[in-house]
Design a protein around this nucleic acid. Structure first.
Length: 463
RNA sequence: GCCUCAGUAGCUCAAUGGUAGAGCAACCGGCUGUUAACCGGUAGGUUGUAGGUUCGAGCCCUGCCUGAGGCGCCA
């Protein structure tokens, strides 16, 4: 028995019209009377359901009319057009077989649920319309990212997940250890003796694969990572998670300008790809999540991102006349409210803010002439905030060592990172894209917990 | 970590300090080319939790738990 997928019915309808087909799926909703019944069946391959029509000619008509939601069935029937109805076609069933039963207390009702409630049932929410759309878009976007870099001849590199170095001071780290926490070995000084730990030293989950990506950029020219990342920060916001995915490209022989061009091309490519591949999902988001989504994304895909230096941005904010909760100063960096004003009110589209003060940025960012700022940029996006963090890396050995010493860093764990500068360490640049934030931007979903299959945040790991 | 708000039926929400209700879902029945179907009926509650104030607390006060929003950190 050949099983037809619902996606095929929608995408290649003419091949199946007026023919007998067999489909398998789950009952999303069912309406029935003593004369006729309708099932909306979803088989997971497509956002939309197929309407199944059945009548008392079915041997098991009475049984079928009472099926609870989420019952799995196999349906044999004829596909016919329904030009007068909401759906383009329907399946007139000649046989319906129950494959797996469900129950009356199925928690997903045929009504709208709140996102908070759906979060409580993370094992069932992918079956809802919204999350069906979210996770299909997530998959399509991930594929688009690989496609983009593959077409540009980037090497896909797998940076380590377990690390011994606090990669960039990017955040608090989760410790990895096999020591017995209730009975740790001690040094003569009364500290934990990590030489007896699994790796013979202190180790953590990586907060970034960037430093290792630089190794590969200086061997393969253009590379990217796309992997999970872990931050043990006590962040309580709608856009932070303890486990999330980052894309971290690294480009050799490239300065900050090259970097920004690549970022903009990537974002637009993914955006275009998702809009082309997921029209049904995007229409759903546009109607039920964010009425302005389609227009905004089209606008972004077809216009240049804004560009402004940090110093200019501070001037714009000071001259705006807008009352901010926090005053704008060059030294203290931009507050969220300042960033939002720039992207949402001034530019109304994604904007690169470049050349930040060195004191509020990481040690590895290349010092600008003048010595006050670094060749770094944040891509600020309306509704999301910082979507991408990028910089040209400090390739000058002496300048880098000076900077690390200024920051009183222990150079030992970075011996290999410094050595990269000694042997053909050309100028290079890279960036980090928060994958979930990109998905939030694409879908209009405003909480990061709703674009991750099983979200992990402070004090919260349900499934 | 800080600030604010919320928690009442399975879900979404009402209820002036004075007898806890509705819609949807579920269950029973009816009816219909329906599409968040429709109509009638039934059942469903220690009001998050532990105390306190009061003749009387869902409502006022305190602690705790859970969730949401904002801020900081950042992707």
């Amino acid at each position: 028995m050949k099983i037809c997928e619902v996606k095929s019915l929608y995408r290649q309808t003419s091949q199946y019209l007026n023919q007998e087909v067999t489909i398998q799926g789950w009952v999303r909703t069912l309406r029935a009377s003593n004369a006729r019944g309708f099932i909306e069946l979803n088989d997971g391959t497509f956002f939309k359901n197929v309407q199944i029509v059945f009548d008392p000619n079915l041997a098991n008509f009475d049984e079928i009319t009472k099926l609870p939601i989420a019952t799995a069935v196999t349906v044999l029937g004829k596909l016919v057009e329904t030009p007068e109805a909401k759906q383009p076609f329907e399946l007139q069933a000649s046989a319906i077989t129950v494959e797996a039963t469900s129950n009356q207390d199925y928690p997903l009702q045929k009504k709208r649920h709140t996102l908070e409630y759906l979060r409580e049932i993370a094992h069932l929410r992918p079956r809802s319309n919204l999350f069906s759309a979210v996770f299909r878009v997530r998959s399509v976007a991930a594929f688009a990212i690989h496609k983009f870099f593959n077409e540009q001849n980037f090497l896909y590199v797998h940076a380590p997940i377990i690390t011994a170095s606090d990669a960039e001071g990017a955040g608090e780290m989760f410790r990895i250890s096999t020591l017995d926490l209730l009975n740790t070995p001690q040094t003569p000084h009364g500290k934990v003796d990590f030489t007896q730990d699994f790796f013979g030293k202190e180790t953590y989950l990586s907060v970034s694969g960037q430093l290792e990506a630089e190794i590969f950029a200086l061997a393969f020219k253009n590379v990217y990572t796309f992997a999970p990342t872990f931050r043990a920060e006590n962040s309580n916001t709608a856009r932070h998670a303890a486990e999330f995915w980052m894309i971290e490209p690294e480009l050799a022989f490239a300065d900050l300008q090259d970097n920004m061009e690549n970022i903009e091309a990537l974002i637009k490519y993914v955006l275009r790809h998702v809009m082309d591949q997921c029209p049904e999902e995007m229409a759903f988001f546009n109607e039920f999540v964010d009425k302005g989504l389609r227009e905004r994304l089209e606008n972004v895909a077809n216009s240049d991102f804004g560009r402004i230096t940090y110093t200019e941005a501070v001037e714009v904010l000071k001259k705006s006349g807008k009352q901010f909760e926090y005053p704008v100063t060059w030294e203290d960096g931009l507050q969220t409210e300042h960033e939002r004003y720039l992207s949402e009110d001034v530019f109304k589209r994604p904007v690169f803010v470049t050349n930040y003060p060195k004191d509020i940025k990481s040690f590895y960012m290349r010092l600008d002439d003048g010595g006050k700022t670094v060749a770094a940029t944040d891509l600020l996006v309306p509704g999301i905030g910082e979507l991408v963090g990028a910089s040209q890396r400090e390739e000058r050995y002496d300048v880098l060592v000076n900077r690390m010493q200024e920051l009183k860093m222990n150079l030992d764990p970075y011996w290999w990172y410094l050595e990269l500068r000694k042997y053909g360490g050309v100028k290079h640049s890279g960036y980090g894209v928060g994958f979930e934030r990109l998905i939030m931007y694409l879908t209009g979903i405003s909480n990061i917990r709703d674009v991750i299959p099983c979200p992990r945040t402070v004090g919260n790991l349900k499934i």
